[in-house]
Amino acid sequence: MKIVVTVKLVPDPNAEKRIDPATKRLVRTGVETVLNPYDEYALEAALQLKERIGGDTTVTVFAMAPESLKETLRKALAMGADDAVLLSDAGLEGSDVWGTSYAMAHALKKVGFDLLIVGGLSDDGSTGATPGALAEYLQTPLVTNARKADVADGKLQIERETDTGYQIVKAPLPTVMTTALTFGEPRYASLKGIMGAKKKTIAAMALADLGLDQSVGAAGAKTELLSFAPPPVRGKGNVVEAADGATGAKAIFDFLKEKKLV
């Protein structure tokens, strides 16, 4: 079985983000690029499934990102993925969610898969819409928020979290699946994994390989970014020392009353 995992390369979510007021862009100096956290969970799910299914099951990671970020993908290989595909092209720059999924779907069709595992949310784009758009373009089912998955008789049996509980669903292959964070904590790359990753292949793909009918990148985008600004400064508010419970409670209560929150 061939499992493919999409991995977005994003500015480190743990870094304090700063926006340059002059350029209205994210200050990237000193901010490392990392694997999108949700995608590490997706990869963990793929690796667990590979261990469980065994046989000739393989895990390929796929990213659409500038060529310069290629080495960041090694982390996924060090965690245990077998190989990687990187779709890079100047013509993809400025793609919106529609263009990203349209281009990615065409590339993933070429890569081929039985199971495509996509992260639930990217830290920078944060639409959560990519998995659905990919499934639609790839004409496969979509099963999101899986916390458990198994393959039996060529079908996927998935336990998934919903807004109000959970469901057990059965899906044919190929399918697009996303994982909930409860699927399992992403593993650390072992020293052996890190060494081994250096020898694994990262295949390159470009726009010309996809044969798209519609233009992507900034020109083809269906939405445009008008502004990107820091949030209104949330300055340090009042700090009140409370001698006892009643004083502390009253300080909060009075404040909430003033704000019309009680």
């Binding site: 919106d96 969610v97 529609w98 999924s101 349209y102 779907a105 784009g125 944060s126 639409t127 959560g128 819409a129 990519t130 998995p131 659905g132 758009a133 990919l134 499934a135 639609e136 373009y137 979509l142 999101t144 928020n145 979290e161 919903t162 807004d163 519609q214 985008a221 269906k222 939405t223």
Partner: peptide, 23 residues
């Protein structure tokens, strides 16, 4: 913008060839 809502929104992006603004 709920778990279930995102799935529907994503599928519609491709189905209608539409742009999306999220959250």
């Amino acid at each position: 913008n709920t778990l279930g809502g995102k799935d529907v929104a994503g599928r519609l992006v491709a189905r209608l060839g539409a742009g999306i603004v999220a959250d």
